Computed example of a mutant assay.
Amino acid sequence: MDNSTSATAVGKPDRPLPVTPGAQGLAGTSFKHEHLSAILADGLNNGFFEVHAENYMGAGGPPHRALAAIRADYPLSIHGVCMSIGGPGALDVNHLARFRDLVARYEPMLVSEHLAWSSHGRTFFNDLLPLPYTQDTLDKVCEHINQVQEAIKRSILLENPSTYVAFASSTMSETDFIRAVSQRTGCGLLMDVNNVFVSANNHGFSASAYLAEFPLEQVGEIHLAGHSEQHDDENELLLIDSHDRVISDSVWMLYRNVVSRIGPRPTLIEWDSNLPDWPVLRAQALTARRIMAEHGISLAGELSHEA
Protein backbone atom coordinates (compact mmCIF):
# COMPACT_ATOMS: atom_id res chain seq x y z
CA MET A 1 0.00 0.00 0.00
CA ASP A 2 2.30 2.68 -1.30
CA ASN A 3 0.73 6.07 -0.56
CA SER A 4 3.78 8.06 -1.62
CA THR A 5 3.71 10.67 -4.34
CA SER A 6 6.50 11.85 -6.58
CA ALA A 7 8.20 15.04 -5.42
CA THR A 8 8.66 17.86 -7.87
CA ALA A 9 12.34 18.22 -8.70
CA VAL A 10 13.58 21.57 -7.51
CA GLY A 11 16.92 23.14 -6.86
CA LYS A 12 16.14 26.28 -4.88
CA PRO A 13 12.33 26.18 -4.77
CA ASP A 14 10.29 29.38 -4.76
CA ARG A 15 7.66 27.84 -2.51
CA PRO A 16 7.10 24.19 -1.58
CA LEU A 17 3.73 22.59 -1.16
CA PRO A 18 3.21 22.52 2.63
CA VAL A 19 1.53 19.11 2.38
CA THR A 20 2.32 16.33 -0.08
CA PRO A 21 -0.85 15.65 -2.10
CA GLY A 22 -2.75 12.68 -0.65
CA ALA A 23 -0.71 12.60 2.57
CA GLN A 24 -2.72 14.91 4.83
CA GLY A 25 -4.26 12.21 7.03
CA LEU A 26 -1.29 9.87 7.33
CA ALA A 27 -0.04 8.96 10.79
CA GLY A 28 3.20 7.09 11.25
CA THR A 29 5.93 6.05 13.64
CA SER A 30 9.67 5.78 13.86
CA PHE A 31 10.81 2.55 12.22
CA LYS A 32 12.82 0.29 14.48
CA HIS A 33 14.15 -3.06 13.29
CA GLU A 34 12.83 -4.74 16.44
CA HIS A 35 9.31 -4.05 15.15
CA LEU A 36 9.78 -5.30 11.58
CA SER A 37 8.08 -8.67 11.99
CA ALA A 38 5.16 -7.16 13.93
CA ILE A 39 4.69 -4.41 11.34
CA LEU A 40 4.67 -6.89 8.47
CA ALA A 41 2.13 -9.02 10.36
CA ASP A 42 -0.09 -6.20 11.66
CA GLY A 43 0.83 -2.89 10.08
CA LEU A 44 -0.72 0.53 9.91
CA ASN A 45 -3.23 1.36 7.18
CA ASN A 46 -2.72 4.89 5.85
CA GLY A 47 0.55 4.99 7.74
CA PHE A 48 4.15 5.85 7.04
CA PHE A 49 7.51 5.27 8.70
CA GLU A 50 10.42 7.57 9.44
CA VAL A 51 14.10 6.73 9.72
CA HIS A 52 17.19 8.70 10.65
CA ALA A 53 19.22 9.14 7.49
CA GLU A 54 22.56 8.46 9.15
CA ASN A 55 21.52 4.90 10.05
CA TYR A 56 21.21 4.00 6.34
CA MET A 57 24.19 5.61 4.69
CA GLY A 58 26.00 2.32 4.16
CA ALA A 59 25.76 0.52 0.84
CA GLY A 60 23.73 -2.50 1.96
CA GLY A 61 23.34 -5.18 4.60
CA PRO A 62 20.55 -5.86 7.12
CA PRO A 63 19.56 -2.20 7.62
CA HIS A 64 18.73 -1.77 3.95
CA ARG A 65 17.01 -5.15 3.67
CA ALA A 66 14.71 -4.18 6.52
CA LEU A 67 14.05 -0.71 5.17
CA ALA A 68 13.38 -2.03 1.68
CA ALA A 69 10.76 -4.39 3.14
CA ILE A 70 9.00 -1.44 4.75
CA ARG A 71 9.35 0.77 1.66
CA ALA A 72 7.64 -1.88 -0.44
CA ASP A 73 4.37 -1.22 1.42
CA TYR A 74 4.65 2.23 3.01
CA PRO A 75 5.78 5.77 2.25
CA LEU A 76 8.95 6.85 4.03
CA SER A 77 10.12 10.00 5.76
CA ILE A 78 13.89 10.49 5.86
CA HIS A 79 14.94 12.60 8.83
CA GLY A 80 18.52 13.88 8.98
CA VAL A 81 20.15 14.42 12.35
CA CYS A 82 23.80 15.23 11.56
CA MET A 83 23.82 17.75 8.69
CA SER A 84 24.59 20.60 11.12
CA ILE A 85 22.36 23.03 9.24
CA GLY A 86 22.93 25.66 11.94
CA GLY A 87 26.69 25.25 12.17
CA PRO A 88 29.05 28.13 11.41
CA GLY A 89 31.28 26.07 9.12
CA ALA A 90 30.70 24.59 5.69
CA LEU A 91 28.53 21.51 5.28
CA ASP A 92 30.38 18.21 5.04
CA VAL A 93 30.18 17.52 1.30
CA ASN A 94 30.71 13.78 1.74
CA HIS A 95 27.87 13.59 4.25
CA LEU A 96 25.65 15.61 1.93
CA ALA A 97 26.47 13.28 -0.97
CA ARG A 98 25.48 10.22 1.08
CA PHE A 99 22.29 12.00 2.14
CA ARG A 100 21.51 12.81 -1.50
CA ASP A 101 22.07 9.21 -2.56
CA LEU A 102 19.82 7.89 0.20
CA VAL A 103 16.99 10.21 -0.86
CA ALA A 104 17.41 9.10 -4.47
CA ARG A 105 17.46 5.43 -3.44
CA TYR A 106 14.21 5.41 -1.43
CA GLU A 107 12.28 8.36 -2.93
CA PRO A 108 10.74 9.31 0.42
CA MET A 109 7.48 11.18 0.81
CA LEU A 110 9.15 13.65 3.19
CA VAL A 111 12.72 14.81 3.83
CA SER A 112 13.64 16.83 6.90
CA GLU A 113 16.48 18.20 9.00
CA HIS A 114 16.93 20.11 12.27
CA LEU A 115 17.46 23.77 13.03
CA ALA A 116 20.55 22.94 15.06
CA TRP A 117 24.26 22.29 14.81
CA SER A 118 26.12 19.13 15.77
CA SER A 119 29.67 19.40 14.48
CA HIS A 120 32.65 21.72 14.61
CA GLY A 121 35.58 21.10 12.32
CA ARG A 122 36.10 17.36 12.34
CA THR A 123 34.43 16.86 15.73
CA PHE A 124 30.87 15.51 15.85
CA PHE A 125 28.73 15.86 18.95
CA ASN A 126 26.03 13.44 20.01
CA ASP A 127 23.49 16.20 20.38
CA LEU A 128 21.44 18.79 18.49
CA LEU A 129 22.79 22.08 19.79
CA PRO A 130 21.06 25.50 19.75
CA LEU A 131 22.17 28.55 17.81
CA PRO A 132 21.86 32.32 18.22
CA TYR A 133 19.08 33.93 16.22
CA THR A 134 21.01 36.69 14.46
CA GLN A 135 21.34 37.97 10.89
CA ASP A 136 24.67 36.23 10.45
CA THR A 137 23.22 32.92 11.59
CA LEU A 138 20.19 33.42 9.36
CA ASP A 139 22.41 33.94 6.33
CA LYS A 140 24.42 30.79 7.10
CA VAL A 141 21.35 28.61 7.75
CA CYS A 142 19.75 29.75 4.49
CA GLU A 143 22.98 29.07 2.60
CA HIS A 144 23.09 25.54 4.01
CA ILE A 145 19.44 24.79 3.29
CA ASN A 146 19.80 26.00 -0.28
CA GLN A 147 22.84 23.76 -0.65
CA VAL A 148 20.92 20.71 0.62
CA GLN A 149 17.89 21.42 -1.57
CA GLU A 150 20.07 21.90 -4.62
CA ALA A 151 21.81 18.58 -3.92
CA ILE A 152 18.65 16.51 -3.52
CA LYS A 153 16.61 18.47 -6.11
CA ARG A 154 13.64 18.96 -3.81
CA SER A 155 12.62 21.03 -0.82
CA ILE A 156 13.14 19.90 2.75
CA LEU A 157 11.26 20.46 5.98
CA LEU A 158 13.09 22.24 8.80
CA GLU A 159 12.29 21.20 12.39
CA ASN A 160 11.96 23.64 15.28
CA PRO A 161 14.34 22.69 18.12
CA SER A 162 13.96 21.71 21.74
CA THR A 163 16.41 23.84 23.73
CA TYR A 164 17.81 24.05 27.23
CA VAL A 165 19.81 27.29 26.93
CA ALA A 166 19.25 30.49 24.94
CA PHE A 167 21.75 32.98 23.54
CA ALA A 168 21.79 36.52 24.93
CA SER A 169 23.15 37.61 21.53
CA SER A 170 19.93 36.69 19.69
CA THR A 171 18.32 39.65 17.92
CA MET A 172 15.10 37.96 16.82
CA SER A 173 12.66 35.43 18.20
CA GLU A 174 12.82 31.77 17.21
CA THR A 175 9.50 32.02 15.36
CA ASP A 176 10.62 35.11 13.41
CA PHE A 177 13.89 33.37 12.57
CA ILE A 178 12.13 30.24 11.31
CA ARG A 179 9.67 32.30 9.27
CA ALA A 180 12.54 34.19 7.63
CA VAL A 181 14.34 30.93 6.78
CA SER A 182 11.24 29.51 5.13
CA GLN A 183 10.58 32.68 3.17
CA ARG A 184 14.15 32.96 1.90
CA THR A 185 14.76 29.32 1.00
CA GLY A 186 11.30 28.00 0.16
CA CYS A 187 11.75 25.14 2.60
CA GLY A 188 8.74 23.78 4.43
CA LEU A 189 8.57 23.31 8.19
CA LEU A 190 8.36 20.34 10.49
CA MET A 191 6.42 21.33 13.60
CA ASP A 192 7.62 19.27 16.56
CA VAL A 193 4.91 19.87 19.15
CA ASN A 194 6.83 18.18 21.96
CA ASN A 195 9.81 20.44 21.26
CA VAL A 196 7.58 23.48 21.69
CA PHE A 197 6.28 22.17 25.01
CA VAL A 198 9.77 21.26 26.27
CA SER A 199 11.31 24.61 25.31
CA ALA A 200 8.36 26.58 26.70
CA ASN A 201 8.73 24.89 30.09
CA ASN A 202 12.51 25.22 30.16
CA HIS A 203 12.55 28.90 29.18
CA GLY A 204 9.34 30.02 30.88
CA PHE A 205 7.30 31.12 27.87
CA SER A 206 3.82 30.17 26.71
CA ALA A 207 3.63 27.24 24.29
CA SER A 208 0.28 28.54 22.99
CA ALA A 209 1.78 31.99 22.34
CA TYR A 210 4.67 30.37 20.46
CA LEU A 211 2.24 28.48 18.24
CA ALA A 212 0.28 31.68 17.59
CA GLU A 213 3.47 33.28 16.23
CA PHE A 214 4.74 30.25 14.30
CA PRO A 215 4.29 30.18 10.48
CA LEU A 216 1.96 27.20 10.65
CA GLU A 217 0.90 27.71 7.03
CA GLN A 218 4.26 26.24 5.99
CA VAL A 219 4.04 23.09 8.13
CA GLY A 220 4.34 19.92 6.05
CA GLU A 221 4.77 17.39 8.85
CA ILE A 222 4.18 17.18 12.61
CA HIS A 223 6.26 15.29 15.17
CA LEU A 224 4.97 14.05 18.52
CA ALA A 225 7.07 12.42 21.23
CA GLY A 226 7.32 11.73 24.93
CA HIS A 227 9.55 13.73 27.26
CA SER A 228 11.12 13.04 30.64
CA GLU A 229 11.38 15.23 33.72
CA GLN A 230 14.52 16.19 35.61
CA HIS A 231 15.50 19.04 37.91
CA ASP A 232 18.31 21.53 37.34
CA ASP A 233 20.89 22.74 39.88
CA GLU A 234 18.33 25.15 41.35
CA ASN A 235 15.77 22.34 41.67
CA GLU A 236 13.64 23.82 38.89
CA LEU A 237 11.77 21.42 36.62
CA LEU A 238 13.73 20.63 33.43
CA LEU A 239 12.08 18.74 30.59
CA ILE A 240 14.19 16.53 28.30
CA ASP A 241 13.14 15.64 24.76
CA SER A 242 13.87 11.98 25.45
CA HIS A 243 11.62 10.13 22.96
CA ASP A 244 11.31 7.24 25.40
CA ARG A 245 7.69 7.16 26.58
CA VAL A 246 4.09 7.87 25.64
CA ILE A 247 3.06 11.38 24.64
CA SER A 248 1.85 13.54 27.53
CA ASP A 249 -1.69 14.87 27.76
CA SER A 250 -0.35 18.43 27.53
CA VAL A 251 1.36 17.69 24.21
CA TRP A 252 -1.77 16.01 22.86
CA MET A 253 -3.70 19.18 23.73
CA LEU A 254 -1.22 21.35 21.84
CA TYR A 255 -1.44 18.96 18.89
CA ARG A 256 -5.22 19.34 18.84
CA ASN A 257 -4.71 23.09 18.79
CA VAL A 258 -2.39 22.91 15.80
CA VAL A 259 -4.59 20.54 13.80
CA SER A 260 -7.70 22.62 14.57
CA ARG A 261 -5.96 25.64 13.03
CA ILE A 262 -4.27 24.17 9.93
CA GLY A 263 -6.06 20.88 9.40
CA PRO A 264 -4.44 17.43 9.29
CA ARG A 265 -0.77 17.05 8.45
CA PRO A 266 1.31 13.86 8.20
CA THR A 267 1.99 13.11 11.86
CA LEU A 268 4.90 11.04 13.14
CA ILE A 269 5.26 9.44 16.57
CA GLU A 270 8.94 9.49 17.57
CA TRP A 271 10.10 6.79 19.98
CA ASP A 272 13.85 6.12 20.03
CA SER A 273 14.72 4.37 23.32
CA ASN A 274 13.04 2.16 25.92
CA LEU A 275 11.11 0.80 22.97
CA PRO A 276 7.66 -0.61 23.70
CA ASP A 277 6.04 -3.49 21.87
CA TRP A 278 4.70 -2.53 18.45
CA PRO A 279 1.01 -2.36 19.54
CA VAL A 280 1.85 0.45 21.99
CA LEU A 281 3.54 2.54 19.33
CA ARG A 282 0.82 1.73 16.82
CA ALA A 283 -1.84 2.87 19.29
CA GLN A 284 -0.14 6.26 19.65
CA ALA A 285 -0.29 6.70 15.87
CA LEU A 286 -3.98 5.77 15.86
CA THR A 287 -4.64 8.42 18.52
CA ALA A 288 -3.13 11.01 16.18
CA ARG A 289 -5.31 9.66 13.37
CA ARG A 290 -8.43 10.04 15.51
CA ILE A 291 -7.57 13.64 16.27
CA MET A 292 -7.01 14.34 12.58
CA ALA A 293 -10.34 12.66 11.79
CA GLU A 294 -12.03 15.25 14.00
CA HIS A 295 -10.65 17.98 11.74
CA GLY A 296 -11.46 17.05 8.19
CA ILE A 297 -10.14 13.59 7.35
CA SER A 298 -12.76 10.86 7.15
CA LEU A 299 -11.18 7.68 8.48
CA ALA A 300 -14.00 6.35 10.63
CA GLY A 301 -14.27 2.99 8.92
CA GLU A 302 -10.55 2.37 8.91
CA LEU A 303 -10.20 3.47 12.54
CA SER A 304 -12.90 1.09 13.70
CA HIS A 305 -11.24 -1.67 11.69
CA GLU A 306 -7.83 -1.02 13.24
CA ALA A 307 -8.87 -0.29 16.82
Rank of each mutant, 00 (worst) to 15 (best):
Q147F: 00
I145H: 12
L211Q: 02
Q147S: 05
F214N: 00
A207N: 02
G186E: 07
N201C: 12
R184K: 12
I178Y: 05
S173T: 14
Q183P: 07
Y210F: 14
S173P: 11
E159R: 01
A209F: 00
S182Q: 07
N160C: 06
L224Y: 00
S162G: 07
Q230E: 15
V193F: 02
P161M: 08
V196T: 12
K153H: 14
I178S: 03
E174K: 00
E217A: 08
K153A: 14
E221F: 05
T185L: 07
C187M: 05
R179Q: 12
E174T: 06
A225L: 01
L216W: 04
L190I: 13
H231C: 12
A168T: 14
I156G: 10
V198Y: 01
P161V: 09
H227Q: 10
E217Y: 03
S155Q: 13
H223C: 11
M191D: 07
E150R: 00
A225C: 03
E221N: 06
S182C: 07
N194D: 09
V219E: 06
I178W: 07
S228G: 12
E150D: 15
I156S: 12
V198C: 01
N194T: 10
A212Y: 00
Q149S: 09
Y210H: 04
E213H: 03
R184F: 09
N146C: 09
C187G: 14
T171K: 07
S208R: 00
L190Q: 09
I222H: 03
A151K: 08
C187A: 15
Y164A: 06
A207P: 05
T171M: 06
V196A: 09
L190G: 14
E159Q: 11
G186H: 10
E213P: 03
F177Q: 02
L157G: 14
S173V: 02
F167T: 14
L211P: 03
I145Y: 08
S170N: 11
G204C: 10
A207M: 06
N146D: 15
S173L: 04
F167C: 14
S173Y: 04
Q149P: 15
N160I: 05
R179E: 15
M191W: 03
L190H: 05
F205A: 00
L224F: 03
S170M: 09
V181F: 08
Q149T: 09
Q183S: 12
E174P: 07
L189D: 10
N146Y: 02
L157E: 13
S182F: 05
N160G: 11
V198T: 05
Q230N: 13
N195S: 09
T185C: 07
G204P: 01
L216S: 06
L157P: 13
F205W: 05
L216Q: 07
Q230G: 15
H223M: 05
I222G: 07
Q218V: 01
R179D: 15
F177K: 03
A168S: 14
L190K: 04
V148C: 09
Q218L: 04
N202S: 03
F214Y: 11
F197E: 02
N160S: 05
E229R: 03
N194K: 06
A166R: 05
T163C: 09
L224N: 04
N195A: 06
